[in-house]
């Protein structure tokens, strides 16, 4: 079949909402876009373990400690599911991890901000996971089968993450004056970076959007961001806290919240490596991987020895 026909057939499948599976023919650009997006998503989960892992040893109660550990562990699982989905496209996990460690591959910039107080655990759960979930729910319907299935599993597990974050902020908001201040401070610091998680404004894009056409993505950045603002602007009232945006107000005409301008200079700076923690995050990942090298080598060597031993035993029996 001619390439042009293959591409036409491929697009027809997408238009009919038929999922694309690993062995199906697909345009190289579709494969590459998926590998890039899925692996970046996986990296975000793995790097995202670090800012929260930062508070595991200091969690203020045994219950909170168990919850936080389970949450960070879930993120490891989510990274694993996603790497597996990307591997079905022919790129090894090791290759993807190398790209992360060399700084070639990207991850969500939000994880380059520091977690400074315990309230950040609540704010990250509520705002950062809340923003991620909007994206993830949409991705459950993405056109590449393994990615969609990984997202379904992730969404099921993720639902406790945002809830626990909000619940722990509720406790702080009803606590001592110091706890209330801690809560507001965390919201102030995490609000804008959370909005940035959705990426640049739609209006900055002039090219036709291949990701939408291929149904890898189904909503634009601004659509998702508006959903998020509308949701959070209501929830923050339940905490008796405020969002750090003087321009935030309900617009009766659009039936949405208007909000202020995002600091895009900060956004691009963090993407380019100048966030408060870019260097530490990558160093931590590199260190863990490097120090794990002899462990992985030993496990392989042992597996090989055991296989040979069993083969010899079989020979002896024969």
């Amino acid at each position: 079949m001619e390439l042009i026909d293959l591409e036409k057939k491929f697009q027809e499948k997408i238009d009919k909402e038929i999922k694309i599976e690993p062995l199906d023919w697909m345009p190289e650009a579709y494969r590459k876009t998926n590998v890039r997006q899925i692996s970046q998503h996986a990296h975000s989960e793995i790097v995202g373990m670090l800012p929260e892992g930062n508070w595991i040893s200091r969690a203020p109660s045994l219950k909170r400690k168990a919850i936080l550990i389970a949450k960070v562990q879930d993120e490891a699982g989510h990274g694993l599911y996603l790497y597996s989905a990307a591997e079905t496209l022919g790129t090894s996990r090791e290759q993807m991890i190398d790209d992360l460690h060399s700084g070639k591959a990207k991850y969500s910039s939000i994880f380059n901000y520091p977690t400074l107080t315990w309230a950040d655990m609540g704010a990250v759960g509520w705002l950062v996971d809340g923003a991620a979930i909007l994206n993830q729910v949409m991705l459950c319907r993405t056109s590449y089968g393994p990615y969609a299935r990984a997202m379904v599993r992730i969404c099921k597990e993720e639902s406790f993450h945002q809830r626990q974050g909000f619940e722990s902020l509720i406790v702080l908001s009803k606590g001592t004056a110091e706890q209330k201040a801690m809560c507001q401070d965390a919201i102030n610091r995490w609000w804008w970076p959370s909005l940035m998680m959705f990426g640049p404004k739609d209006s900055e894009s002039t090219n036709s959007d291949q990701s939408m056409k291929w149904k890898i993505k189904r909503k634009t950045n601004d659509e998702l961001r508006q959903n998020f603002v509308d949701m959070i602007a209501e929830q923050v009232k339940l905490l008796g806290m405020t969002l750090p945006d003087p321009d935030l107000k309900w617009n009766e005409a659009t039936k949405h919240y208007d909000f202020g301008e995002i600091n895009w200079e900060e956004f691009w700076n963090v993407v380019k490596g100048n966030g408060p923690c870019n260097r530490q995050r990558l160093e931590a990942r590199n260190k863990a991987h490097k120090e794990g090298d002899w462990v992985r080598a030993a496990a392989l060597a042992h597996a090989e020895k055991r296989k040979n031993k069993l083969a010899k035993q079989d020979l002896a029996v024969a």
Binding site: A66, A76, A284, A288, D293
Partner: peptide, 27 residues
């Protein structure tokens, strides 16, 4: 728990964290 996010490979990071959670439950 200090291994959580720093394990030698994802699968084992998750494995030792399961043990950590068991121990916290026991304590």
């Amino acid at each position: 728990a200090e291994w959580c996010a720093h394990g030698p490979i994802l699968e084992q990071d998750i494995a030792i964290t399961n043990i950590t959670l068991d121990l916290i439950g026991q304590s």
